[in-house]
Design a protein around this nucleic acid. Structure first.
Lengths: 121, 121
DNA sequence: TGCTAAATCACCCGAAAGAATGATCTAAAA
DNA sequence: TTTTAGATCATTCTTTCGGGTGATTTAGCA
């Protein structure tokens, strides 16, 4: 009987350890699962990288950002404290660098390439 | 010794069960974690609902979709097999219903309200 | 120190976009 | 059947966009 009790005691110890292990491993699985779930939905964010690749200057990226927020040429000019003509020059340069014809297309491309910061989504 | 062996045998059985349980519970945690991770990143999608609320006709939603894809007025007209004037009329009506002044703002609002189908993202 | 890229601004011109208004036609609802 | 909403198209007019070109200034690089 003593033998049995000793054995039983050992298994109880082991049970406790198992519970602890179970909890920890469960947590690990949980964390791993959350990581899996979120990482598949996270988007890569590389602003300066793509912008530099396309030859966009930081001023042009600023303009692009404002364009994407729905501002007119004049509003962009006002917000950057430059003349309308300057704003137009930047915008034209953006079009040629992005290889597009219209501002809507530029905005589209900027979104696709993650050149700009989305306001909502 | 027979007793010991029997007890040992039982614990082995239990160990096997524990491994199974552990695996299953781990899987459950994993699934739950993935669910947690993804659900916090999923977006609501209600197309016809908001469109109706704003009083947009289905034709206008069609036009809005094309606008968001970067098409010019003429291209929208061509794609819907209507005249340029008709396209412009639709677009104007969209602006007043969305309470915006420019097409870029209309596109923005349409995206925010999930009135349109995003091409990429 | 000269070269170069970036940023700034100007002027001109044509095309596109947008506002305002009115008209016709059709299908569905009252 | 009469109303009504949606879709269609037109005309006129103003504003905005976009292309093309050239000039000046400044800051960093070779």
């Amino acid at each position: 009987m003593v033998v049995l009790q000793v054995v039983h005691y050992k298994t109880m110890i082991r049970d406790l350890n198992m519970e602890l292990y179970g909890g920890i491993i469960g947590l690990l699985f949980l964390v791993f699962g959350i990581w899996l779930g979120t990482s598949s939905f996270r988007k890569r964010e590389s602003v300066k990288y793509d912008a530099g690749k396309l030859g966009l200057s930081k001023r042009e990226v600023e303009v692009l950002q404002l364009l994407s927020e729905g501002f007119s040429n004049q509003e962009v000019a006002d917000r950057l404290f430059v003349s309308l003509n300057t704003a137009k020059t930047h915008i034209s340069n953006i079009y040629s660098k992005l290889n597009v014809k219209r501002r809507t297309q530029a905005i589209q491309k900027a979104r696709d390439l993650a050149l700009i910061t989305p306001s909502k989504e």
